[in-house]
Computed example of a mutant assay.
Amino acid sequence: MGMVNMLEAKTSLSKLVEAVESGAEKEIIIARNGKPAARLVPLGQPKKRQLGLAEGKYPPLDYEAFQALDEEVAAMFLGKEK
């Protein structure tokens, strides 16, 4: 397929995208008036996020200890000494 003109790209966009997604075509150049104007390429695989990167780096905090920090946090926001 290689290069297609703008009209063909408009009428068969879903087929072009499918060809690129499936790997049948590495890339498709879309031309305007016979001159290359755009390149249709597949997106790379999305990066996988690794969960739990901070696990074990901070001491455990139970609900009561977390709630006890409310006054301290409020004082920081209000600029008051505790």
Results as ranks from 00 to 15, higher is better:
49 R>D: 13
52 G>P: 03
22 S>K: 00
31 A>C: 12
1 M>N: 05
25 E>Q: 12
70 D>T: 02
15 K>P: 08
34 G>W: 09
23 G>W: 12
3 M>K: 09
36 P>D: 10
1 M>T: 14
37 A>L: 04
77 F>M: 05
38 A>Q: 13
65 A>S: 14
23 G>S: 11
62 D>L: 03
37 A>W: 05
72 E>V: 14
41 V>F: 06
26 K>A: 10
77 F>E: 01
11 T>N: 12
17 V>H: 01
17 V>G: 11
42 P>K: 04
53 L>Y: 07
69 L>R: 15
68 A>I: 05
30 I>W: 04
17 V>K: 04
17 V>Y: 01
38 A>M: 14
33 N>K: 15
32 R>P: 04
39 R>M: 09
22 S>R: 15
23 G>L: 02
9 A>R: 06
51 L>P: 09
43 L>I: 03
43 L>P: 01
13 L>E: 05
76 M>L: 15
71 E>K: 13
21 E>M: 08
39 R>F: 08
78 L>F: 06
32 R>S: 10
42 P>E: 02
7 L>F: 02
45 Q>T: 12
81 E>D: 10
43 L>S: 06
56 G>D: 03
62 D>M: 03
6 M>R: 06
40 L>C: 04
9 A>V: 07
2 G>H: 07
30 I>H: 07
11 T>Q: 15
49 R>P: 07
19 A>V: 04
67 Q>Y: 13
81 E>G: 09
59 P>H: 07
20 V>S: 04
18 E>G: 09
61 L>I: 08
24 A>T: 13
9 A>Q: 04
2 G>S: 01
60 P>V: 05
12 S>F: 01
6 M>A: 00
20 V>A: 07
16 L>F: 15
22 S>C: 03
37 A>G: 00
76 M>V: 06
44 G>S: 14
5 N>T: 01
52 G>K: 15
8 E>Y: 04
79 G>S: 05
21 E>D: 15
60 P>D: 14
54 A>Y: 00
19 A>Y: 15
73 V>F: 08
9 A>K: 01
16 L>P: 11
19 A>K: 15
7 L>N: 00
14 S>D: 12
35 K>Q: 09
14 S>L: 13
44 G>W: 08
64 E>M: 11
3 M>T: 09
9 A>T: 02
64 E>D: 12
60 P>N: 01
4 V>R: 03
28 I>Y: 15
25 E>F: 10
71 E>L: 09
79 G>M: 04
51 L>I: 10
10 K>Y: 07
62 D>K: 02
56 G>Q: 00
72 E>I: 12
72 E>T: 13
60 P>T: 13
62 D>A: 05
58 Y>Q: 09
49 R>F: 09
9 A>Y: 00
43 L>Q: 03
67 Q>G: 11
3 M>I: 10
48 K>A: 06
28 I>W: 12
62 D>W: 05
27 E>Y: 04
22 S>T: 13
33 N>E: 13
60 P>I: 04
61 L>V: 14
34 G>M: 13
4 V>T: 00
59 P>V: 08
36 P>L: 12
78 L>P: 03
55 E>D: 11
34 G>I: 03
69 L>K: 11
67 Q>V: 13
69 L>W: 12
54 A>I: 01
